[in-house]
Every structure is written in structure tokens, then in C-alpha cells.
Amino acid sequence: MNKEQAFSLLDEEGYLLDLTLWSKELALALAAADQFELSENHWEVIDTIREFYQEYQLSPAMRPLVKAMSIKYGPDKGRSIYLMKLFSQSPPKQAARYAGLPKPLNCL
């Protein structure tokens, strides 16, 4: 998927309009447009955030994302400093964008 195809699916803030249209290719295209490389560690966060959305029907802010990471991958990865080092922008927002989820609310 190229950048133009990926961007045609987004709202003006860069979040996916139709959540059912998400694919790994889309995540890769969005990251590439940010000149951001997705490692195994990033995919863990993207998977976690998608599971969170499935269960709670909302995109997590920092605290619940940290908690969900901690539950799934243990305390070393369930820390905000870990997530902040991993991402270049606000982790809940950047990860939600790549994960094809709505913009998280109440996110500082």
C-alpha cells in the first residue's frame, strides 16, 4: 500500500475512518510516511492497543495502555518511560493511529 492509498482512508487528524479497513500493510504505510520503523516491540504495543479496543470499545490513554502492557508483557514493558522511548510522539496517539483506532480522548 502506498502513501496516497493509505492517506485516502484517514480523517483530517490522521486516524482511520473505517476501523474495519485496517491491515498490517496500512500500519506499515502510515509508519513509513512518518519515516518511522516498526519493530517487534512496536507491534506488541499495536496488538495490545487493538485488543484493548476490542474489549473496552475505546482507545486507551497512557495509564490504561501502560496497565494493559504490564498485564500482557510484564512490568518492564508496562512502564510509561518504556513506551515514550519506543515512540517518537505521544505513545497512545501514535500507536492508535498505526493500529487503525480512533484518537484517544483525555490523553495528555
Binding site: 484493548f52 474489549e55 473496552y56 470499545q57 475505546l58 486507551p60 495509564r63 490504561p64 496497565k67
Partner: peptide, 11 residues
């Protein structure tokens, strides 16, 4: 319902 269940994840 699912949103209210998320409260615990916000401590």
C-alpha cells in the same frame, strides 16, 4: 457497558 468496565484500567 464496555466503557464502564474500562474504569479499572484507569485505576
Amino acid at each position: 457497558t464496555n466503557n464502564f468496565r474500562a474504569l479499572a484500567m484507569y485505576d
